[in-house]
């Protein structure tokens, strides 16, 4: 189980030097995303500007007025903690192929990003979603801010089991219904759903002013389509649909093309919504992915 790796001190020490790639806006402009900044509040002066009617007179810099005889408004920046949510797909497709430990990889990435997010004392939580008994079940941990409380995530991470359908749109609906302030949502899934569902989910998260980051996880066997050769009847773990297929070198190549096409489509959707996209294919590459590829994708710095 790969998720246990995310709680090993040796591994966590490698993450200590990383911080989450959050674009904290310097100014507040209408229609643009700006996380953690509310004008006028706080104690750290940010800038001066000329007084305009309607400005709060409490922020007039009277000393500047005495010296320059101009009315200047002092602006302050009030830093506020950002809420970071690692949202892991726990559907049945994440449990297959069993040897790939795809769910373990997703949970490990989610937990590792949460740990990184705690570097700035941001409020962090981990969630998992899947359909259970016909209803969407979105479970999240409480928000934790300090790394000392990181191990509180462990019981939740270890308890997540794969099962049920994906229904990404329903999961996003439930998340948005919690009416939390806009923050960072790291969406970790295999995205073995329709292209429309993926785009719809990402679009709604972006519309809610969340900074969305997508981690696309796939298993090694799954991504290389390396199954024992022969004629098989394959059954979809989520829908139960059955199809006859044949495994062999040609079908392996075709399977790899399909995975590449799927990843390409998800990447395009993310790009179109200015969402950070990262690929984590293969549980064996977990540490390399966290230390080297995540910075390359801009997900961490």
């Amino acid at each position: 189980m790969l998720e246990t790796r995310a709680f090993e001190p040796e591994f966590l020490s490698k993450l200590d030097r990383l911080v989450l790639g959050i674009k904290r806006a310097r100014t507040v402009r209408a229609g643009q995303r700006a996380l953690g900044r509310i004008q006028g509040l706080g104690i750290e002066p940010e800038n001066f500007k000329e007084y305009a009617p309607g400005d709060d007179l409490r922020f007039l810099d009277w000393n500047a007025f005495a010296r320059l005889d101009d009315l200047m408004i002092r602006t302050y920046r009030a830093e506020r903690q950002v809420e970071i949510t690692s949202l892991v797909d726990a559907s049945a497709s994440m449990g297959l192929p069993e040897r790939d430990d795809k769910l373990g990889l997703a949970l490990a990435i989610g937990a590792a990003l949460a740990y990184i997010g705690m570097a700035d004392n941001d409020a962090v939580r981990i969630g998992a979603f899947a359909m259970r008994r016909g209803a969407m079940k979105l479970e999240t941990t409480p928000l934790h801010r300090r790394r000392e409380s990181y191990l509180n995530f462990k019981p939740f991470v270890m308890s997540v089991r794969a099962g049920g359908e994906t229904r990404l749109g329903a999961a996003i609906d439930q998340l948005l219904l919690q009416r939390r302030p806009a923050g960072i949502v790291v969406l970790i899934s295999d995205f073995l759903i329709s292209e429309g569902d993926t785009e719809d989910a990402i679009r709604r998260l972006v519309a809610a002013r969340h900074d969305v980051k997508v981690v696309h996880v796939m298993g090694e066997q799954e991504s290389t389509a390396s199954y024992p050769p022969g004629l098989y009847r394959v059954r979809d773990a989520e829908t139960g649909e059955v199809r006859e297929t044949i495994f062999g070198p040609q079908t392996a190549a075709a399977g790899q093309r399909k995975v590449e096409q799927l990843a390409g489509r998800v990447r395009e959707i993310c790009k179109s919504h200015a969402v950070t996209y990262a690929q984590a294919f293969g549980a064996n590459n977990f540490e390399t992915f966290m230390e080297r590829e995540m910075p390359l994708f801009g997900m961490v710095r």
């Binding site: 073995l192 009847r233 199809r243 297929t245 079908t251």
Partner: peptide, 25 residues
């Protein structure tokens, strides 16, 4: 050899086997 069934994450990644291939198994 007839048709072993295996469970996969999604059928999106698998094509239907062409009939002639199935006949010579």
């Amino acid at each position: 050899r007839s048709r072993p069934t295996i469970e996969v994450s999604s059928l999106m990644l698998f094509d239907e086997a062409p009939a002639p291939v199935a006949n010579v198994r």
